[in-house]
Design a protein around this nucleic acid. Sequence first.
DNA 1: CTTCGATCCTGAAGGC
DNA 2: TGCCTTCAGGATCGAA
Length: 277
Amino acid sequence: VPELPEVESLARELSESFQTHETLVRVHCLRPDLRFPMPIEELESLQGLRFSEVTRRAKYLLFRAGTKSLLSHLGMTGTWRFESDLRLQVHDHLALQFSSGRYLIYNDPRRFGYVDVISTDAIGSSRWLKHLGPEPLDPHLKAMHLQKHASGSSVAIKLWIMDQKNLVGVGNIYASEALFRAKISPLKAASRVSNKEWSALLKAVREVLQKAIAGGGTTLRDYRRLSGDKGGHQSHLSVYDREALPCIRCKTKIRMKVMGGRSTYWCPKCQKGLTGK
DNA sequence: CTTCGATCCTGAAGGC
DNA sequence: TGCCTTCAGGATCGAA
């Protein structure tokens, strides 16, 4: 469900709500059967710690609680919500009870998400984060770095930018959107993307992500903000889910193809690249 | 090493 | 109305 903008929006909302630095009073492990079983004892070791800021790395949420941090990946359908009572719903897996009296609850119908507890001063070297590629919004990242890293890869550019060890945070929706914006075919081999195209692509990725963050995230189906509201961004999608509809630039019929098991949308006229190996 | 496909789940939506 | 099939924004794993 959530790509970088959705996780970033959520991290900001959560961070704001922890301005008051609440203490975690009790952890309720309701259903440990997530993608990886919940580490119950580790989670309980967070009891008594004060929660401060919530940050994001790639598509992971990181709740800082002193020397330890709670890491959360939302998979496809994970959501966090506040409740004033321990009022449970179907697919609630974890409830964090705070000193303020409120509960922060993790719900995940498809159970592709997971949580873990890691040491705050070794977040970057944790098993979840150490193999991740660069953050697209990091101003130190240059198009040249991506081009260099992709130089030996025959993988289609769409799949390449979605691979979290190459570049982080770009999921299925924003991969199609960014390639459309940069006018590059999703089928083009990563190694054949030119210098100029890499610049356009990185710029497009940044613009697409920034716009979505500003809009509070895209909701196609399941994504919910902390408030339970849908994201406000869905009307901004230019190609995703527009198969056979006219391209917004040239009216050509948008095409769809399954790549790596995921639906990919593009305009065969605007987006250059044909194939290539 | 790279690359591809199958796989983990539930629920919403569409066809008949 | 109801049953059945298909598909979904992720990412790991094993096989080739």
